[in-house]
């Protein structure tokens, strides 16, 4: 289920039939991602759904078995270095390179690769995120390493941020500070963000697009408004032996107690209500879902 309102040229990131296999395991299967320019796109999926693999393919760190990927119109395979110049990347792993270098030295090293590196901004981020500049990278804690990775990704003010679980390993205080800095960053410079996270509620205020990866397939991709409008919780009163009929196709979650049924359904509310009524059910209440609940509904076992 994918809905996009942008034309092809408006996409900062687009993939076409992207497939990646590791032996017999399929990490990505025919993924057609569309991230509009300027969007904050949140990618949701359980561990092993293929999120990190997708990021690596976009950075051309791995080679797809089929399909193509483009970043700002550049083929990631043919123009890998040009693509990476557009990207600030926070990888899923929290092991920083050059463990014997200090944080400050590593930042100076990275700066040489980005002609637009903003030294003052790097200093600001280092200070704001509490990265110890004179400490060796190998001696940094998991959280400090993550913060250093965030500085490395943001300091050259790239037009695209690929953030793979950017707040993973951060304590709640730093997590909040990091997200505030990200919000400031987005307000300062036009930036497209593609981020994966298990904590959608944390980025609810930033996110304007959501994609859901399940078992390597992009099962949903829509704007935040579409998601809120079309994924709703319905409280029903149903007759004995009630069967949802054709609604089964859009049923995501269902919990029942007696004749009361609560389910999460995808579709325009009016149409869904009409179908429910036609099937004999009485709609008692319809409620909107938080962004996280709406996105996670697609990960439910019985989501179709």
């Amino acid at each position: 289920m994918t809905h996009t309102n942008a034309s092809a040229s408006d996409y900062a990131v687009s993939t076409h039939g992207l497939c990646k296999r590791y032996g017999r395991d399929t990490a990505l299967d025919q993924v057609g991602l569309r991230v509009p320019d300027g969007a904050v796109y949140v990618l949701v999926g359980v561990n092993g759904a293929g999120k990190s693999t997708l990021f690596k393919l976009l950075m051309n760190l791995e080679r797809p078995d089929a399909g193509t990927a483009e970043v700002f119109g550049l083929d990631t395979g043919r123009a890998g270095s040009e693509v990476r110049a557009q990207v600030g990347y926070v990888p899923d792993r929290q092991d920083a390179p050059y463990r014997s270098m200090t944080s400050a030295r590593l930042l100076r090293h990275a700066a040489a690769f980005y002609p637009k590196w903003d030294h003052a901004y790097a200093d600001h981020l280092t200070h704001a995120l509490g990265v110890p500049p004179q400490q060796r990278v190998g001696g940094l804690s998991k959280g400090e390493t993550r913060r250093l990775q965030l500085v490395l990704a943001l300091a050259h003010r790239p037009p695209l941020l690929l953030l793979d679980e950017p707040t993973d390993g951060l304590d709640p205080v730093v997590r909040r500070r990091a997200l505030a800095l990200l919000a400031e960053h987005l307000a300062d410079a036009p930036t497209t963000v593609l981020m994966s996270t298990h904590h959608v509620h944390e980025v609810e205020s930033l996110a304007d697009h959501v994609g859901v990866l399940r078992d390597g397939r992009l099962v949903a991709q829509m704007t935040r408004e579409e998601l809120r409008r079309t994924v709703r919780s319905y409280q029903l009163e149903v007759p004995d032996g009630w069967a949802p009929g054709e609604l089964h196709a859009v049923e995501l979650r269902r919990s029942s107690a007696g004749r009361d049924v609560r389910c999460t359904l995808v579709g325009e509310e009016q149409q869904v209500t009409q179908r429910l009524t036609a099937s004999g059910a009485r709609v008692r209440q319809v409620s909107t879902l938080a962004l996280e609940d709406a996105a996670l509904a697609f990960l439910s076992e019985d989501a179709s």
């Binding site: 690596k56 950075m59 760190l61 791995e62 270095s81 040009e82 990476r84 110049a85 990347y89 990888p91 920083a96 390179p97 050059y98 990275a110 690769f113 980005y114």
Partner: peptide, 9 residues
């Protein structure tokens, strides 16, 4: 996917 390869070169 080492750091070296994430650089724009």
């Amino acid at each position: 996917a080492g750091f070296l390869w994430t650089l724009p070169v």
